[in-house]
Measured scan of single mutants.
Amino acid sequence: QLNAMAHQIQEMFPQVPYHLVLQDLQLTRSVEITTDNILEGRIQVP
């Protein structure tokens, strides 16, 4: 299920590496919260 959620987020934010999306999802278990984390700059994109 997390993989499906990660792919959904990757479609919206292809610039964010998959492993970072998955790592955040493991903590949040939420597409909405992880999306917010990306938008708020809480996930550092190399």
Rank of each mutant, 00 (worst) to 15 (best):
D24M: 06
L39D: 02
P14M: 05
Q10A: 13
T28H: 05
F13W: 06
V31H: 05
P17Q: 06
G41R: 06
D36H: 15
N3H: 15
Q26W: 12
Q44V: 12
I9R: 00
A4M: 11
V21M: 04
Q44M: 11
P17A: 06
L27W: 09
I38P: 00
I9V: 09
L22P: 00
T34D: 01
R42P: 01
T34W: 02
A4G: 08
E11S: 13
E11I: 14
E40F: 11
V45F: 12
Q26H: 10
T28D: 02
D24I: 06
V16R: 00
L22G: 01
L20T: 07
P46K: 10
R29M: 13
A4S: 09
I33D: 08
Q10V: 14
T34Y: 01
L27N: 10
N37T: 02
I9G: 00
I43V: 09
L39Q: 07
D24G: 00
V31C: 10
V16M: 09
L25E: 01
T28F: 04
A6F: 05
L2H: 04
N37A: 04
Q15S: 12
P46W: 06
L39P: 00
T35A: 10
Q23I: 10
V45N: 10
Q10W: 15
Y18K: 14
E32V: 10
V16I: 14
L20D: 12
T35L: 13
L22T: 03
P46I: 11
I43F: 07
Q23K: 09
I43P: 01
N3W: 12
E32K: 14
H19A: 10
I33W: 07
N37M: 02
L2I: 11
Q8R: 13
F13G: 00
N37W: 03
G41V: 03
T34G: 01
L2T: 05
Q26M: 14
Q1W: 15
S30V: 02
I43R: 02
S30T: 04
Q44A: 11
M12F: 07
P46A: 11
Q26K: 10
F13H: 06
L25H: 00
I9K: 01
Q23V: 08
N3C: 15
L39N: 07
V16E: 03
L27G: 06
R42A: 05
Q44Y: 14
R29P: 01
T35D: 00
M12K: 12
V45R: 08
Q8C: 11
P17H: 06
Q8F: 12
L25W: 00
M12A: 08
N37F: 03
P46G: 11
L27Y: 09
L25S: 01
R42K: 09
N3E: 15
Q23M: 11
D36L: 15
I38D: 00
Q8S: 09
T28L: 01
D36V: 15
M12G: 05
Q26V: 11
Y18A: 13
P14N: 04
I9M: 05
P14W: 04
Y18F: 14
G41L: 05
Q44L: 12
P14T: 04
L27H: 10
M12R: 13
T28Y: 04
L2C: 12
S30L: 03
H7E: 10
H19Y: 14
L22M: 09
R29T: 06
V16T: 05
E11K: 15
R42Q: 04
I43D: 01
V21P: 01
V31G: 05
N37S: 03
F13S: 01
E11D: 09
L27M: 12
L39F: 05
I9H: 01
L20H: 06
P14K: 04
L39C: 09
H19I: 09
A6I: 09
H19S: 08
L27V: 13
M5P: 02
I9N: 00
P46C: 11
Q15F: 12
N3K: 14
P14I: 02
E40S: 15
T34C: 02
N37K: 06
N3G: 11
I38G: 01
V16Y: 10
Q44D: 10
H19L: 09
N3S: 14
H19G: 07
T35G: 04
E40L: 13
F13V: 02
L39R: 14
L25D: 02
H19D: 15
Q8A: 13
V31R: 07
A4L: 12
Q1T: 13
V16Q: 03
Q15L: 11
V45I: 13
V45W: 14
D36G: 13
D36I: 15
H7N: 10
P17L: 05
Y18Q: 14
A4V: 10
L2N: 03
L20N: 05
V45S: 09
S30P: 01
M12I: 09
S30I: 02
Q1G: 12
Q26Y: 13
L2M: 08
Q44W: 15
L20R: 05
M5L: 11
M12T: 07
N37Q: 00
L2K: 02
V16A: 05
N37P: 02
R42L: 07
Q8H: 10
R42S: 04
Q23Y: 08
T28S: 07
I33Q: 11
S30G: 01
R29Y: 10
E11N: 11
I33P: 00
T35Q: 07
Q23C: 11
N3F: 12
Q15V: 05
T35W: 07
R29F: 11
A4Y: 11
S30W: 02
E40R: 15
G41P: 01
N3T: 13
E11V: 13
E32C: 10
V21S: 01
R29A: 08
L39V: 09
L2Y: 08
L27D: 08
L27K: 13
D36T: 15
A6R: 01
A4Q: 12
I38F: 05
T34S: 04
R42V: 05
V21E: 03
D24W: 05
H7G: 07
T28W: 07
A4H: 09
S30Q: 03
I43H: 02
V21I: 15
V31Q: 07
I38Q: 00
R29W: 13
Y18P: 15
Q1Y: 14
P46L: 09
L20K: 06
Q26I: 14
M12H: 08
V45D: 08
Q15P: 01
I38R: 00
P17W: 04
N37R: 08
I33V: 12
V45M: 10
I9D: 00
I9Q: 01
L25K: 00
E11R: 15
G41W: 03
D24E: 03
T35F: 07
L22I: 10
P14Y: 02
H7T: 11
I43C: 06
E40M: 15
D24N: 05
E40H: 14
P17Y: 03
T34L: 02
E11P: 03
